[in-house]
């Protein structure tokens, strides 16, 4: 996608996966403080980015992110290296977010989801005239996307962020969230459709205000 002039400065840095090699993980398993620090350097912003979008406040997100790394440090001997360390960290993060949601009385289980069979009946898919490039030019688009994502249920949001923000493949998301592969795809489709509708609404409101 071409981002035209005047678009928001959206920076997305690729994670430094290469710094996390086998020897570093082995040191972490032996409770090496310095090695664990390097692991934190590699993942802290990514984990925080996920958690920040899963809980309502930044303060909560900071607390949970700290808790993720403390739990990882405490239980590194249990990490069997069959999955990637990223999968493991995001799994801890997701579980802590779910725990937090339960504590404040917003159980993710209570969110109703329409699954793939009803997708086309449930959601209106915008036509091809809708152009994301034009939307990018809008000053408040970033906030609109953030708002649309925050309005998703936890179940849809987690899949959307892990796939579209963290570039996780479907299989890894399935492992992280302990879901069947088909459910991951259905939820991703639903999440994107919700965001698309929210942005369409946003554009209509904005155009109405300008007129």
């Amino acid at each position: 996608m071409v981002i035209g002039q005047g678009a928001l400065a959206l920076n997305f840095e690729k994670p430094k996966e290469s710094v996390v090699d086998e020897s570093l993980l082995e040191k972490c398993r032996r409770q090496d403080y310095e090695a664990f620090g390097k692991l934190v350097d590699a993942y802290q912003n990514r984990v925080f980015g996920f958690v920040r979008r899963m809980v309502p406040t930044g303060e909560d997100a900071e607390d949970i992110t700290q808790e993720v790394f403390i739990r990882a440090f405490q239980n590194f001997h249990r990490f069997d290296m069959r999955s990637s360390v990223r999968t493991w960290l995001f799994k801890i993060a997701h579980n802590l977010c779910v725990d937090r949601a339960r504590k404040v009385g917003r159980s993710p289980e209570q969110v109703s989801l329409a699954l793939s069979a009803d997708i086309e009946e449930e959601f209106e898919v915008p036509d091809d005239r809708w152009q994301p490039d034009q939307m990018l030019a809008q000053a408040n688009l970033e906030e609109a996307v953030e708002l649309a994502v925050s309005q998703l249920s936890e179940k849809l949001r987690s899949v959307l962020i892990l796939h579209d923000r963290e570039d996780m493949p479907y299989e890894e998301i399935a492992t992280t969230l302990n879901l069947p592969l088909g459910t991951v795809k259905s939820r991703l489709f639903l999440a994107r459709t919700h965001v698309q509708n929210a942005l369409k609404q946003y554009m209509e409101d904005r155009n109405g205000n300008l007129a």
């Binding site: 996608m1 981002i3 959206l10 920076n11 997305f12 840095e13 802290q44 912003n45 925080f48 980015g49 920040r52 997100a61 900071e62 992110t65 898919v125 915008p126 091809d128 809708w130 994301p132 939307m135 990018l136 688009l141 970033e142 996307v145 953030e146 994502v149 959307l160 962020i161 796939h163 579209d164 923000r165 570039d167 489709f189 994107r192 459709t193 965001v195 698309q196 942005l199």
Partner: peptide
């Protein structure tokens, strides 16, 4: 359309601690 949304989500700013 789905890929366009994916692209927008991907370009959300990174949160720094």
């Amino acid at each position: 359309q789905q890929q366009a949304i994916a692209s927008l989500v991907k370009k959300l700013p990174e949160e720094n601690l």
